[in-house]
C-alpha cells in the first residue's frame, strides 16, 4: 500500500526534494504550495522541478545535501542535514544537538536520562 501511494502522489523524498518540502511543512507549518515555493526559491529552481528526480539528483549532488544512491564522499546523514539547514535557513533539531555535543557551539550538552 505504501508503494501505491508513493507511485500515485509522492514527491519521492531524497530522490527529489520531498524531504526538503517536508521540513518546511514541519518546522514552519507551511501549506504545500508555500513550502514548494520556499524550497524552489532557495534552490533556484521552479516548484515543478522539485518533484523531478532527474534534475534533483544532479542538483543534490552539486549542493552536497545527500542523494538517494550510494556515492562515496557525498554528504550523508548528519553532514547532509547540516548543509540542508544552512541551505533552507532553518534550524534542524538534530543538527543543533550535534553542534552542542561536539562543542561546535556553546550550550549545555545532552544530559540524557
Amino acid at each position: 500500500m505504501h508503494i501505491a501511494h508513493l507511485l500515485a502522489s509522492s514527491m519521492g523524498g531524497i530522490r527529489a526534494a520531498g524531504d526538503l518540502v517536508a521540513r518546511m511543512q514541519l518546522s514552519k507549518k507551511m501549506r504545500i504550495t508555500e513550502a514548494k515555493e520556499y524550497v524552489a526559491d532557495k534552490l533556484h529552481v521552479t516548484p515543478l522541478d522539485l518533484s523531478d528526480p532527474t534534475l534533483m539528483r544532479q542538483l543534490r549532488e552539486e549542493l552536497d545535501i545527500g542523494v538517494i544512491t550510494g556515492v562515496p564522499g557525498i554528504a550523508k546523514g548528519m553532514a547532509a542535514k547540516v548543509r540542508i539547514a544552512e541551505l533552507l535557513d532553518i534550524q534542524i533539531n538534530c543538527v543543533e544537538q550535534f553542534k552542542k555535543k561536539t562543542g561546535l557551539v556553546t550550550g549545555p550538552k545532552s544530559a540524557g536520562n
Binding site: A4, S10, P47, L48
Partner: peptide, 15 residues
C-alpha cells in the same frame, strides 16, 4: 490499473 496525480502536484508523505 493505477492512477496518479498530475505531475507537479505531488505532495509529501508522513508515516
Amino acid at each position: 490499473r493505477i492512477w496518479g496525480c498530475q505531475r507537479g502536484n505531488e505532495v509529501v508523505m508522513t508515516k
